[in-house]
Each structure stands twice: as C-alpha cells, then as structure tokens.
C-alpha cells in the first residue's frame, strides 16, 4: 500500500497519494518540503518579543491584501481621490473595514517594527554574523516609513495635503541638492496632480517591489544563520 509521510502526518488516501506523486514527479516538491519544513527545527527559547519580526511580516501581508482591495475603487486624481475614499468608506459594503484595516495596519506596523528593532538591539542579535541583516532591517524600516509617508497623501484630505507640503519642504534644507530633491519629490514647485501620481506609484509599485526584495534578503539570511540562540 502506497503512502506518503509528511512529518507527523501520514497520507493513505490513494487518490491523494496518486495526485501528489503526479505533481511531485514534475516539481520535486517532496524533497523541498522535507528539507524546508519537515526536518527543520526551531528554538524553544523564543519569548514574546521574538515574535515581532513575524508579526510585522503578517501585517505587511495584510497591507498588501487590503491595499489591493482599496486600489480597486481608489482613483488617484486630485478631483476624485477624496470622493473615492469617501465612497469606499460609506457606499461600498465592508469598505470601511478594508480602509480601517489598512490605516490601522500602517500604524501597527510601525509599532511592531520598532519593537522588533528594539529586541534585536537590546539582545545584541545584530552582532556577527548577523551585521548585514541589521543593515537590511534598517533599510526595511525606512521603506516602512516611506509607505506611511506616501500613503498618507493618497486620501487627499486637508491633513494629508498639508502634512505633505511640510514633509516635502524638509529636504530642501539639504545643501546644494535640497531644492532639486524637493522638486523631484513634488514633481514641480507645488503639491499637485503630479505629486499625487508620483506618491501613488511609489506607494503601490516601487516601494512594494523594493520591500519584497529586501524581505527576501532578510529572510535568506535568517534561513542561513538560523534564529539566534539564547544569550
């Protein structure tokens, strides 16, 4: 009788075994699963604070899902953006939940990133051989803040507009290239349709791609170096 063993689970159903074998012959899944899941071990000493990296990743995934859903109805146009957000909130069924999750997710993600960073710092986990993963993490922190900054403008409210006016004014203080940076961020002297389109593109395309690349680097290093042992 043919059967498959996945760690503690034994599959005996003939159809399931046949189906899996068919796919497995072509993809070599079993080997990968055994390597990456079923013979893998995890430390038992992990405390509450060690979970925040994983929690941050989960919230990031939630942001991707709710962000996609918002993008279905959101219109990145200075005349229509606000109305489209109002429509999502008031007219679309469960739209208020999706927007609420996305807004709260943004805030919670900053909190969990900070806790994660604090844990890594105070437990000295950034030390060799994990120095480079700390650097990757700091870049991810900046990407998270970039998401918050660009996402904040999108509803095109008084607060988001003026916070962006002030926020994009700040880099103009940099010697020599300051004004160039400001104009590059705004796409002109003022906050306009160009700025909104730019922030939208950054928020939904560029930053997500950069984040995924950095996350892959982050996780590859964890996989290679393992979760840090107890002190």
């Amino acid at each position: 009788m043919e059967q498959l063993k996945f760690g503690p689970i034994t599959v005996k159903n003939r159809l399931a075994v046949k189906g899996f074998n068919y796919i497995n012959k072509r993809l070599g899944l079993k080997e990968i699963l055994d390597d990456e899941v079923f013979t893998k071990v995890a430390p038992t000493h992990l405390g509450f604070l060690s979970c925040f990296g994983g929690i941050t990743f989960f919230i990031f995934l939630m942001q991707v899902v709710t962000g996609l859903l918002l993008m279905i109805y959101y219109i990145p146009d200075v005349d229509k953006a606000y109305a489209s957000v109002v429509m999502i909130t008031n007219d679309i069924e469960f739209g208020w939940v999706v927007r609420g999750l996305h807004a709260w997710g943004a805030n919670l993600m900053v909190i969990t990133v900070i806790i994660h960073m604090g844990k890594i710092y105070f437990s000295g986990i950034y030390k060799a051989p994990r120095e480079f993963n700390w650097v990757t993490g700091i870049v991810l922190l900046n990407l998270t803040l970039g998401f918050s900054f660009t996402g904040y403008l999108l509803p095109w409210t008084q607060l988001s507009y003026w916070a962006t006016v002030v926020g994009t004014e700040v880099p103009s203080a940099v010697p020599l290239v300051g004004d160039t940076i400001k104009i590059l961020m705004r796409g002109g002297e003022d906050i306009s349709q160009v700025t909104l389109s730019r922030f939208f593109t950054l928020h939904v395309i560029l930053l997500p791609i950069a984040t995924v690349v950095l996350l892959v680097l982050h996780f590859m290093q964890i996989r290679r170096q393992g979760i840090s042992g107890p002190m």
Partner: peptide, 17 residues
C-alpha cells in the same frame, strides 16, 4: 486589527484645499 478598525475607524477629514 478587526477590533481596532471596527471600534476606532480612521478619521477622514475634509478634502484638501
């Protein structure tokens, strides 16, 4: 997250001017 989104929905001010 669901609880927060339900009990404290994010504020949406007036349109940018």
């Amino acid at each position: 997250m669901i609880t927060l989104a339900t009990l404290f929905p994010p504020h949406l001010g007036s349109m940018a001017d």
